[in-house]
Amino acid sequence: MAFIELAGVTKTYTKGEVEVVPLRDVTLAIEAHEFFVLLGPSGSGKTTLLNLIAGIDRPQQGTLRVGGVELGKLSSGRLSDWRAENLGYVFQSANLVPVLTAYENVELPLGLFPLSRAERHRRVLLALEAVGLSDRAAHLPRQLSGGQEQRVAIARAIVADPPLLVCDEPTGNLDHESAEVVLALLDRLNQERKKTIVMVTHDPRAAAHGTRRMVLDKGRFRPEEPTR
């Protein structure tokens, strides 16, 4: 059984009076520890698919299982708990809380677990160390560069040690150098910590980091061969 399984998934929404179908009868399997890259033109449904896998949106039709759990059957509260335990989400912009330091931003997901203060401290330091920002722990987001902010966001995504990382254009707002640092970090998380990563990108250089790439076009898949 694959780690992520979508079978006959359809997602529709209305925009004004027009019905939009970003995903139509999509079937997909992603194995555990894969670095899966989703490519496609704007409006092709990439982010919609990512949001479904992340459990922040629900399909109208079809089934979606992640780690053996059928997300569509979970209540809103249980789905929140599932996300806290299983998901790290990296947004295109870091989306850090501006009034919290890097340390406090990374600590945010741990507030949902019954952990001691010492254990939270240990985990936050480990996460910051993993992204190479231990020395920026006390900095506010506005005191960090774009690349550093995104690395703090990655630290926040991995601090609770979820098996799945979902990244929506994580390098979209970064310069080439910062983007490479972030992509190398995702490579390491995939290879060393065995995280399953699903990443949406427009950038072919970013896409090259994936172990498998697929192109989504008008709500349907066009597969590509693995790049490495």
Partner: peptide, 9 residues
């Protein structure tokens, strides 16, 4: 973002 992190409503 909070909700995505797993914060309940």
């Amino acid at each position: 973002v909070f909700r995505t992190l797993g914060y309940r409503p």
